[in-house]
Design a protein around this nucleic acid. Sequence first.
DNA 1: CCCCTGTTATTTTTT
DNA 2: ATAACAGGGG
Length: 806
Amino acid sequence: MRAGGQGPSEKLAMDAIFRDLTEAQREAVEHIEGPMLILAGPGSGKTRVVTHRIANMLNHGVRPWQIAALTFTNKAAEEMRLRVDSLAPGQPVLIGTFHRFCAQLLRRHASMVGLSENYSIYDTSDSKQAMKRAIAAAGVSTTHASPEQIASSISHAKNRLTTAEMMEGHALTPKDAIAARVYPVYQKQLLTANAVDFDDLLLHIAHLLRENPEIREELDTKYKYILVDEYQDTNLAQYAIVRALSINAPNLAVTGDPDQSIYGWRGADLNNILDFEKDYPSVKTVRLEQNYRSTPNVLRVADQLIRHNRRRKPKKLYTDNDEGSPVILRFYEDGYQEADSIVDEIANAINSQGLRPNDFAIFCRMNAMTRSLEHAFRNRSLPYQIVNGQEFYQRREIKDLLAYLHLINNPNHDVALTRIINVPTRGIGAKTIDKIRNHADQHGLTMLEAARQANTIEGLAKRSASMVRKFIQIYDNLSVKATAPLEDLLRYLVEATSFEDHLEKTSVDQQDGNSLANVDELISAAVEFDRQHPDDGSLEAFLEQVALVSDTDAFDGTNDRVTLMTLHAAKGLEFPHVFIIGVEDDMLPHKRSKENEADFEEERRLLFVGITRAKNWLQLSCCKRRTIRGDVRPVIPSPFLNELPLEEMRRVETTRDQDWFDQDPYADEDSFDQGYPDSWDIPTDDTSKIKNDTPVDQVESASQIIADETTQLPEHELAAAAARNKKKQASAAIASSLKTAADLLSNPPTPLRAYCEGMLVRHSEHGDGTIVSVTGRGPKRIARVRFEDEERSFRLAFADLQVLDD
DNA sequence: CCCCTGTTATTTTTT
DNA sequence: ATAACAGGGG
């Protein structure tokens, strides 16, 4: 059925479009001409409104190619495409991310900004490499600003549409001043390499539109109706682009929620949405405040929290959903217990309540926090997925192969050349590469061109030059296949470089057995791409697609797995049961967010986004100590916790079994555990609130907490959890005796003795020795041991040292 | 030039 | 804990 068809079919479509809409939703869907602002709270059916609106526009004779719907993530774009397609099948409406939209525009108009159409998109690590080279070339010292800081400063400038020349004018902070010196060099390098970074995609288009009125007008009229999703996350560049395309045809409809703005660090400007009504005085504003997703319990917690933000538009969140169960605030001893216990609870809930793994999601502030969870899931053999899709394309072997493809597609791609000129190793070392680079810089050549002149490069050994020629030979052979189907190209590449031999050689010691499998997976992706793009199956398009995939795209809701992801990645999703871990000071208001109020409020919004993902059930948790980059630190609960309606929440303390606690290897070292006992209250004047008003439950079982049943977690499972927790701290010798719960019950370990001077110990490798000194405390405690003919130091917490009885 | 080893710095969030 | 980096022996 075609949208906009005749008679009965149109009626059917209209019915499908308007059925079950609330008054506010209908109002938004019916709107076609003129600017519109849809303020949509979480779970208010925003995507539904947007997609139905598109369908309605098509029904009213708007041509599909006149509509451009812009999102931030591919995931959101796909979702929208899917839902538009079910209402108006097969309509070529442009739905895509800002970056992809710009990338495609830039292909067409590349020459306007000094690029050619086969330009490459540098990913973060590519631009990091380029940045280092630019810093060196600019002769800038990195003592006062790290390459990362310089990169971030330049990135921010680009997001604010500030060019290198403009930045020179008004130097601001010392760091920006340093960045201002690198910026023009970096930019010039990108241009020579015929490449752009992510920010450039937006920046180039914004400038293009500003400086070429004809092009601007042509595109403005072409994309007569523009929709922007998550408008609160737009930065100045995106704002400029959208505005430039809405002058002749000011039919700009934006949706967003100021309370869900979480990309300020990437340059998003909350003012864009807060001031939209000023930008377009004739705007029609629709507020979607009814929530269809969450229980009142969840919603009240979210609302109480977000009230504390000052920069926002107050809004009412309400729902007709059932009350549901109270939100849980849970305390754990440490991150390991947190992980084990959450996984146990999920496993039990699945067994006893007929829930599925994909009913659950666990959110965290940092990707690193998924590690301990991953272990716990593996121990339990519960299916899980960690949403960071970049991982595959970040693997070394994949990046290497892609670098070959990049160089074939764009011979100017110096970063790619540097990456693969000696992969597999072919006798071209760092020195040789430096010489090629210098030669290129001196003569204004790309590195590939410079490499072609290897013979004439001064000071380059004959041997090296011939190695370089060999590489050029391989490259030229590959280039011939550039227009072949991707699959053929890749297979030829793998063969011509003996890539598989190379992998086998270099991954001997690693458990990298999958690197070969990864190559196969890449080939499969190529096959798939060939299939989807039979005619235009260009290398360029494939590389663009790969460059613009993101973490969040990896999420697959149809997989029956528990989902682990960052709070940022969770935006736009919903799950029946949600755990938010690490709601801790310096973690959830992240340490680096505390310098200014704007950043701090963004952290609050981040938690708000997390909370409002939950449909039926929610737990926030917080540990008493957490292992951060190797060592254990005491933790202060997040100040946000005191902003929640604690009196209606359920507080749960999970302590470790006392017997186990006593056997702590450091128990008699008077250090370590004593740091926290009473510092453990929420650090505000409001402490009493959480301590006294809420009943403190002791250890509760998983199903008890999730379903209010009273089954008790079997004792051995608690012990097993405790054993897993212990492993990290106990010495290897002791830990190995604690492998299973059964072991545990039949062979209670002997209490540990504190190591001290003069003690006789045995090491599996070095043999017997005597402790000459013991220093440090806690996990950093180090013993110096004298063996027969040498002296060594060991971190006691991890060392393989067995105490010998006299 | 290659590879192994030990040392050092580094860690938010992502298109 | 991990990765990037530097230095030394082969």
